[in-house]
Computed example of a mutant assay.
Amino acid sequence: MKIHYLQHVYFEGPADIVRWARKKGHKLTGTHLYNYEALPDMDGFDWLVIMGGPMNIYEEEKYPWLKYEKQFIKKAIESNKVVLGICLGAQLINDVLGGKVTKNLEREIGWLPVTFNSSILKSSFFKNFPKEHYVFQWHGDTFSTLPEGAVCIASSEVCSNQAFIYNKNVIGFQFHMESTRDSISLLIDNCLDEIKDGGSYVQSEDEIKSQMNLLIDANSLMENFLNGLEAYYLEGK
Rank of each mutant, 00 (worst) to 15 (best):
A76I: 00
G228Q: 05
E148N: 09
E59S: 11
S185M: 13
I120G: 01
K27D: 03
Y233C: 11
A21M: 09
S179K: 13
S200P: 00
T142Q: 15
L105G: 02
P64K: 09
A163W: 02
G52D: 04
N224V: 00
T102R: 15
V83N: 04
F11S: 10
I184G: 14
F116E: 07
K23C: 08
G110W: 10
A15M: 03
H4R: 06
I195R: 01
S118L: 12
L105D: 09
V83L: 14
V49G: 11
W65K: 05
D197G: 14
E223I: 13
S210D: 11
E132S: 15
H133L: 00
K131I: 07
N104P: 08
D189K: 15
E148V: 01
L105N: 04
V96Y: 07
N56I: 00
Y36F: 14
C152T: 10
G85A: 07
L92T: 00
G30T: 13
Q203P: 10
W111I: 04
F11I: 06
S144L: 11
T180E: 06
D41K: 14
M212D: 01
S144A: 15
A90D: 02
E157R: 09
P14T: 10
M177V: 13
L214K: 15
E108S: 03
D46C: 03
G30I: 13
G198D: 06
A163G: 14
S156E: 04
E235F: 08
E61C: 00
P64H: 07
Y233L: 10
A15H: 02
F126R: 01
I216R: 09
E148S: 06
V96R: 06
V135S: 08
L214I: 04
D43S: 07
G25M: 09
V96G: 06
Y63S: 05
S155Y: 12
A15E: 14
I73D: 05
E207M: 04
G110P: 12
L84N: 02
F125I: 01
I165H: 01
S210V: 11
I171N: 09
F125H: 14
D197N: 14
S210L: 11
D193Q: 13
G199P: 06
K70T: 14
I171M: 13
E37C: 08
P147C: 10
S210E: 11
K81A: 03
C87Q: 04
